[in-house]
């Protein structure tokens, strides 16, 4: 199973995307990305947490401590409205970028 390195900046997009579906804690964010990418993308902790803190500092996500169903204290991140708007922008620009790369690969 080969794991692709995440493109610069795309990690923020992925985090915002999985948090759009539901609020999650850090570990779950990395697992969800792994799962949804069918094990292609594995998020390294050393990138995940700085990214989470950076997104929070930019006001795109918020966090709160909650008690989980198993009675464990967990820190859950959720998208803010600013984050939702940012995700829309990021998604469009990523699609344009990916489409452009695909167009070049498919050419000729």
């Amino acid at each position: 199973m080969s794991r692709s390195d995440l493109l610069q900046g795309s990690l923020d997009l992925l985090i915002l995307r999985v948090l759009e579906m539901e609020p999650l804690h850090g570990w779950a964010v990395s697992k969800r990305i792994q799962l949804l990418s069918r094990d292609v993308l594995e998020v390294n902790q050393g990138s995940l947490y700085p990214a989470l803190y950076r997104l929070r500092d930019r006001g795109l996500i918020e966090s709160e401590w909650r008690t989980s169903d198993e009675g464990r204290r967990i820190k859950v991140y959720h998208l803010t409205s600013r984050g939702r708007r940012a995700l829309g922008r990021e998604r469009r620009s990523w699609r344009r970028f990916a489409g452009a790369v695909e167009a070049i690969l498919a050419a000729g």
Binding site: H25, G26, W27, A28, K31, Q45, Y49, Y53, R72, R73, I74, K75
Partner: peptide, 20 residues
Amino acid sequence: PDERELDEELRLHLELEIEE
């Protein structure tokens, strides 16, 4: 960043990984 909060969060991450 709150160091204690970060510690707890990272410990949580490790515990969940171990359980998995």
